[in-house]
Amino acid sequence: MEETCLEEGPAVNFERATLEIANTDPVRSTENADNISNQNSASRYVCNVPFKHIDVHTFFTDRNEVVERAISDCTEKLIKQNDDELVGSWLLTEISLWDTEKERLVLLSTKALYSIKYDFISLKILDFNRVPILLFDTIVTGDIIYPSSSLAPRLNGLAEGVSSVIHCAVRQEWSSIAGCSNLTQFEPRKRHMSGIRLMWNRGQPLPLIKKWNPFARNIPWLTYASHPLFWYKDGTEIVKTRFDIEVFNTTLKSLLPRESNVVNMPIIIENYCSLGALVHNRNGLGFFKVRGKISF
């Protein structure tokens, strides 16, 4: 297209001029750009969601005011009785020494951390663990991973592939079974989770009698990750922060004593070949959910 100057230069012939209407609405253009950007970022984010193929409405904690009532109940019975002050409250996923995921209500006070097993069906405290904040000597934050020699990622990939084929068959999507049975469905599955490990073992290794005992208690560390509802629950950002491990991490660090050592490195879950953890986690047995005609 030839450049035309209206102030100087030869006259311009307008006999064959055409009219073009362009979308020059800056507000609409900005909105469209933002929507595309949000969709792209959301799609990248969803690819790394660690909990897939779940129905959030089966969680009892998805119901209105259930978590709020539990926090109020635990604050009244645990924190106020110890003449303490509540700093923050979260619903998180606790990962045990044996790689089992459990739903835990975590209350942080000025003096201690409370990890509470709460029955969200009958609304009562089942068990709790109180750890004074001054006891924490090491805080590890980072991605949750398995050892390089672990079979857990391969078992998770195998379970995911078999589950996809079964879902296609149950829904009678026979034309999709070929795609569901693609070998990529059976590739090793990483956790795609970041977490925090709170330790008070003073650098001492765990005794073998505890390390290989699935019923051992008093393990000198706690490992947490975000709750599944963090990725799926609808609502404001204020609501979602209740399930977010990053917000918990920031609040806890502000209360730690100066001598505590904060380390950024991967958190290793020493699960080498645990079929029990695989069945437990895939079925969400550590969470209070509606399971058909029964709930637990």
Rank of each mutant, 00 (worst) to 15 (best):
M1D: 12
E3P: 00
T4W: 14
C5R: 09
L6G: 02
V12M: 04
V12N: 02
E20I: 07
I21G: 01
N23G: 13
D25S: 14
S29E: 15
T30H: 15
A33V: 13
S37A: 14
S41V: 13
Y45I: 03
Y45N: 05
V46A: 15
V46Q: 13
V49Q: 10
V49I: 12
P50T: 03
F51N: 12
K52P: 01
H57G: 11
H57A: 14
H57L: 14
T61A: 13
D62F: 10
E65Y: 06
E68F: 02
R69C: 15
R69T: 15
C74T: 11
E76M: 09
I79A: 13
D83Q: 12
V87H: 04
S89A: 15
S89H: 04
W90K: 07
T93V: 06
T93F: 02
S96N: 15
L97Q: 10
W98K: 15
D99C: 11
D99R: 10
T100E: 10
K102Q: 14
V106S: 10
L108D: 00
L108W: 01
A112C: 11
I116Y: 00
I116M: 02
I121V: 12
S122Q: 13
S122R: 13
L123V: 03
K124G: 09
I125L: 06
D127E: 12
I133E: 10
F136W: 08
F136A: 08
I139H: 07
D143T: 12
I144D: 02
I145Q: 07
I145S: 08
S148D: 12
P153T: 11
R154K: 14
L155Q: 10
G157H: 04
A159R: 08
G161I: 06
S164R: 07
V170M: 07
R171N: 07
Q172G: 02
I177G: 11
A178V: 11
C180T: 00
S181N: 08
N182L: 05
T184A: 12
E187N: 08
P188R: 01
H192L: 07
M193V: 08
S194M: 11
G195A: 01
R202H: 09
G203I: 05
G203D: 01
L208V: 14
K211A: 15
K211R: 15
L222D: 07
Y224R: 00
A225D: 05
S226N: 08
H227S: 02
W231A: 05
W231H: 09
D234V: 14
G235A: 00
G235N: 00
E237Y: 07
K240N: 06
I245W: 09
E246G: 02
K253M: 08
K253Q: 15
L255E: 12
L255G: 05
N261E: 09
P266N: 06
I267H: 02
E270F: 08
A277K: 08
R282S: 09
G284D: 04
F287H: 03
K289Q: 08
